[in-house]
């Protein structure tokens, strides 16, 4: 089992593609790694691709929210892209709204959003 989600550094952006069903600790690890990388690289944007995720439960939702808040404190903007429609619906039904997390349909729109910021 993978114990790190890879983070790519592209220009002033950090790019994360979550391709596995993350267990909780892995999600927390990602949160730590990302904040660490933002501070070390001075990245201005974080793009998290969750198109491979078949499910976002409340824990992962909270981690995404945390990443977004922490990045904001470190002067970086976070965009979550590629959420599957079923996941989105379930999230809403579950009662999660992901307040403060910017979302975009796909990577391209997400990058644009970051570039405009």
């Amino acid at each position: 089992m993978q114990d790190r989600i890879p983070i790519l550094h592209m220009g002033s952006c950090l790019l994360v593609t979550i391709q596995v069903d993350m267990h909780d600790r892995l999600a927390l690890q990602l949160q730590d790694d990302l904040t660490e990388r933002i501070s070390s690289t001075g990245a201005k944007g974080v793009l998290i691709d969750i198109s491979s995720l078949e499910m976002v439960d409340s824990f992962i939702g909270r981690v995404l929210g945390n990443i977004s808040s922490m990045a904001r404190v470190l002067d970086a903007k976070t965009v979550v892209v590629g959420m599957q429609p079923a996941v989105a619906i379930t999230l809403v039904e579950l009662g999660l709204s992901l307040v403060g997390v910017s979302t975009a349909l796909n990577v391209e729109k997400g990058m644009k959003l970051l570039a405009n910021a």
């Binding site: 409340s58 824990f59 939702g61 909270r62 039904e93 579950l94 009662g95 999660l96």
Partner: peptide, 16 residues
């Protein structure tokens, strides 16, 4: 108020 998720666990499950 949950300390792990977003406070939706059981209630969320009931909705789903």
């Amino acid at each position: 108020r949950s300390t792990t998720g977003m406070g939706v666990g059981l209630i969320g499950a009931r909705r789903l």
